[in-house]
């Protein structure tokens, strides 16, 4: 399986911690040695993290009008087409970080964003359901097998 970094994006706050929590849970599953799992603490760190990986899978929470816990597979252009898609610190969010990595030629050979939907109206309780984790594992393995 090709070397791939699974990068959880987020913070300690509310639903924004979802990317981190999922990565922490994924670490307890069986992965080949070529897979590494890490956390990204601010979007400004993302270009440097991407600079050092061959393939990347980004995990992040996404606010939607739909139910929580849906896994959306996004490509870079999906973020570019939705300039308000990412929230940010210093006006520098995931979208801007990926644009910067692109401008610097620091994107890995392949990159997908797995966005986990969060219901905008309900406070996130920090619980990861076994079904969500299982589905995420499956989606990641499918993606890795296609690389």
């Amino acid at each position: 399986m090709p070397a791939t970094s699974i990068i959880g994006i987020g913070s300690h706050h509310g639903a924004d911690q979802l990317g981190w929590l999922l990565c922490e849970r994924l670490k307890h599953l069986d992965w080949p040695d070529t897979i590494d799992i890490q956390l990204c603490r601010t979007p400004a760190q993302l270009p440097e993290l991407l600079n050092h990986c061959e393939n990347a899978i980004l995990l992040d929470a996404i606010k939607t009008d739909t139910d929580s816990g849906k896994i959306l597979q996004l490509q870079l252009k999906d973020l570019a087409d939705n300039p308000n898609a990412s929230h940010s610190c210093h006006g520098f969010g995931v979208t801007e970080a990926l644009e910067l990595a692109t401008a610097l030629g620091q994107l890995p050979a392949s990159i997908i964003i797995l966005a986990i939907s969060i219901d905008d109206k309900t406070a996130y309780d920090g619980v990861i359901s076994p079904d969500l984790l299982s589905e995420l594992h499956e989606v990641i393995e499918d993606h890795l097998n296609k690389l």
């Binding site: 400004a44 270009p47 440097e48 801007e96 910067l100 401008a103 610097l104 620091q106």
Partner: peptide, 19 residues
């Protein structure tokens, strides 16, 4: 900074390294 990276790529990379 994304616009700036087109003309100042090595400087932006330096900033990211230092950060």
């Amino acid at each position: 900074v994304t616009e700036m990276a087109a003309d100042y790529a090595s400087e932006v990379r330096r900033g990211l390294r230092l950060q």
